Amino acid sequence: MATITRATRIRNPALFICDIQEKFRPVIHEFSKLIPTTTKLLRATAPLNIPIYITTQNRSKLGPTIPELTPHLSASNLIADIDKTLFSMITPEIDALLPNTRTGEQALDVLIVGIETHICVTQTTLDLLERGHRVYVIVDGVSSVNEGERRVALERLRDAGAVVTSSESVLFEILGDAGHPGFRGVSGLVKEMKEETKGAMEVFSRI
């Protein structure tokens, strides 16, 4: 009997950025390490033509998306920038924009970064999996107030069918070939941010 596996290559990537907001800056574990990871992925969306979905949680109380990210959000591939009260990013507005896998539309390979891992990231991931999409939780791009909650959430999400992986890994998987037209831009970006990536991985890869 053939072995059933969830392993698959990233074919239809989308970047989801969950609630990286000003009011969370002083309280989230290693918040500063999330910024370069998210920036790197955002900058890679242009050469790789990856759509972007971003949310804020109750923006009037918790503040806007941090200013370090906003210069990279004006690209034509920004699909949604939604304020919400739901914990999940899959609001009715975003749900309406997603491919409908039940009618045969191609599933997304969602790369998700943001906060908090055990609340909004978890609920978003579960909602996406339920809709037939694949989810890649970027280990160097998610955090919580409590480091322990983050670790427990990542274990749960793996069990649920998400892939926990790194930002550098997914970028080179999307490229797939040094002959890809985006290779020079993405590989240069990875080299430019290698120290920031190293710092984030040293903090966040222990799960």
Rank of each mutant, 00 (worst) to 15 (best):
K191C: 04
I20K: 04
L98Q: 06
L128T: 05
T117F: 00
C18T: 14
I94V: 13
R25E: 11
T70M: 11
V113R: 01
L157K: 02
I4H: 06
M193Y: 04
T45G: 11
P92E: 01
L48I: 06
G148Y: 10
R11Y: 06
E155C: 07
S205V: 10
S32K: 13
Q57E: 14
R9V: 13
Y53G: 04
S144C: 15
A7C: 00
I52E: 04
G182Y: 03
T165Q: 00
L86N: 12
L69V: 11
D95Y: 02
P51Q: 10
K194Y: 07
K84N: 06
N77L: 08
T197D: 12
T45Y: 04
V121N: 06
I79K: 14
A46M: 07
S60C: 01
A46D: 14
Q123M: 08
V164G: 00
G185S: 15
L171V: 01
M89L: 10
K194T: 09
M89N: 12
H29F: 15
I138K: 03
I94D: 09
A178Y: 08
E195L: 06
E195A: 12
G148N: 14
T3G: 12
P26F: 11
V186D: 03
D83Q: 04
T5W: 00
D81M: 04
G132Y: 01
I17Q: 04
I79A: 13
H133A: 02
I10L: 09
A44G: 13
M193A: 08
G185Q: 15
K33W: 04
N49E: 13
N146S: 12
M89G: 11
K198A: 14
E173R: 04
G148C: 00
R9I: 09
P51M: 10
V137R: 07
E105S: 10
V164C: 03
F87A: 08
L41V: 08
K198D: 14
E195W: 03
D95N: 13
R151W: 04
A96F: 03
A153N: 06
C120L: 02
H133T: 02
T39C: 08
K33C: 12
T197W: 05
F183D: 12
K23E: 15
P99S: 06
V203W: 06
N49L: 03
D83R: 05
T85M: 10
A2H: 00
L15T: 07
T165P: 02
N77D: 13
V170N: 01
G141I: 05
G63K: 09
E130F: 03
S144P: 14
I50A: 10
L128K: 03
S169G: 02
V135R: 05
I79P: 01
I28L: 07
E93W: 00
A80V: 02
G185W: 02
A178M: 11
E22D: 15
V186G: 05
I28Q: 05
E195V: 10
G188L: 09
P92S: 03
E155Y: 10
P67R: 11
A2D: 00
G179E: 15
G148W: 08
S76E: 15
M193T: 13
T55G: 11
L98D: 09
V121L: 07
G176C: 05
V137N: 07
I28M: 12
R59D: 15
R59Y: 09
G104M: 07
I20N: 06
E68S: 14
L69Q: 08
G104V: 08
V145I: 14
L126H: 08
E168S: 03
L126M: 12
D159W: 00
R134C: 05
I4D: 04
N12F: 12
V113N: 01
P71K: 09
L73W: 03
